[in-house]
Design a protein around this nucleic acid. Structure first.
Lengths: 255, 255
DNA sequence: GAGTGGTCTAGACCACGTA
DNA sequence: ACGTGGTCTAGACCACTCG
């Protein structure tokens, strides 16, 4: 029992890629592979398509196939949540992006929409009830990097600076706190999946690239959810990081 | 300008799937689609393969194509880190799995290996220096669920219960603390990517399923890294969750 | 045995990038 | 002009599942 030709070819090429066999990052053309491995072009393409879907290859029409390179940006949602009062610094994305010598920017759209099921559930409102959506497309050096959509109950956000489509230097969380909705707890959920077509388009996601969907729900001290964030992060450009301190830290240090 | 046939077909089928058109979750056979859309079988298969790689479909040889269903398990690495002393409860995976009425189990292998680059860097040891690897394959109802590999510097783990291939009811973190390596801080990194072949095999990951690689590095109060965990979580079965409390929480409450 | 998906072939034409 | 990947076809044989 031997595996099919296209799988053997996939395995061979994968090993070569992992072993840095194609030092210039360029894979031979389909025609050359047909000649080298004595199989049909269909079989060659099956192997190359599989490797694309594994995220190892990139095909450039009219040019050739190339080994993919990754450059990851450290995303620290933590920082925004913990930002101290009265600091006028930019948010973690802007700050970290600048620190790495890159040029961060964002496009902001604010709208009012009927809450979809998952938003309604997390915010504790009725499905279809209107909520405020603050939609951000974040870019680094002009390239799309992540989608960041924040949802707020209408009574929380309406009439505040949250409704502004401009950047909010002191941070949305601070604005909410000023209106009596200080968040003291947050629940983070990280889902992993393949991107949907609109995400592929907006974020220009190449084949074989999964996304993380990071959902943050923020609660006030009386345990009301006043904010839900859905960030969609293409896996080829993002790492999500958290910094955790043990609750007993101080106790242990002082003991 | 119109898009190619296989893309149109992909879009049509995707819309039908999202719109719950195939109520029984069963997609028509390739032959039927050839007849319905008047295209070659190759084109039909291109569309079906694309949808498989988007994670929407599952192909069962000799039977047919089916819409994929997901069931996610809430993974709370938080709980292990914060586990209080002297509680003899099981770890978060075992506890949560049982709570959901499922049957959690794990296979543990302990070995000593030369540190790979990423481990060496995080643990602050030389590359190739021997470290202790505690490798766990976690299962739910007998189905593989996640890989959980813990790495420890040799001087930290050797001669302790960490080297045991048995379950450690009070938790590895507690064992380390008892030996003077209490962790007070942890850094979490979440990467998203397509699985590698050995992961596909061990975790039985179907096509079109990305994984999260969750790396936890634990530090003592003098900022030494004494533990690195690499969890590999297939996206079709796992959600990573964190619970965060604002550092100013107490202050705000008492104010 | 009939139907299903999996494999593989040869061959054709096209759009695109590069020189 | 040439080489590249992208699209599409018709057709063949196989292994598997299921009634």
């Amino acid at each position: 029992m031997s595996s099919p030709k296209h799988e053997q070819l996939t395995a061979t090429l994968r090993d070569r890629i992992d072993g840095d066999f194609y030092t210039d990052g360029r894979i031979p053309s389909e025609a050359n592979l047909v000649g080298e491995f004595r199989v049909s072009r269909t079989t060659v393409r099956a192997a190359l398509t599989a490797l694309q879907n594994e995220g190892l290859l990139r095909a450039q029409s009219g040019v050739g196939y190339f080994v993919r390179k990754f450059r990851h940006f450290m995303y620290r949602p933590q920082d925004d949540f913990q930002r101290k009062k009265l600091t006028a610094e930019a948010d973690s994305f802007t700050r970290a992006g600048t620190a790495e010598g890159r040029n961060p920017s964002q496009r902001i759209d604010v709208s009012m929409i009927p809450a979809p099921e998952d938003v309604a559930r997390r915010l504790g409102v009725a499905r279809g009830e209107f909520v405020v959506l603050r939609s951000r497309l974040r870019l680094l050096d002009g390239e799309p990097f992540q989608l960041n959509d924040s949802y707020y109950p209408r009574d929380v956000a309406e009439g505040t600076a949250v409704m502004s489509a401009d950047d909010i230097p002191r941070g949305v969380n601070q604005v909410l706190a000023d209106h009596g909705f200080a968040q003291v707890r947050a629940l983070d959920e990280v889902w992993v999946r393949m991107p949907r077509p609109p995400e592929v388009e907006r974020l220009r996601i190449p084949p074989g690239t999964p996304v993380a969907e990071h959902i943050i729900t923020g609660f006030t001290c009386d345990d009301r959810a006043v904010r839900m964030v859905r960030a969609v992060l293409p896996g080829d450009r993002n790492v999500i990081t958290f910094d955790r301190t043990h609750p007993d830290h101080d106790a242990e240090l002082s003991a």
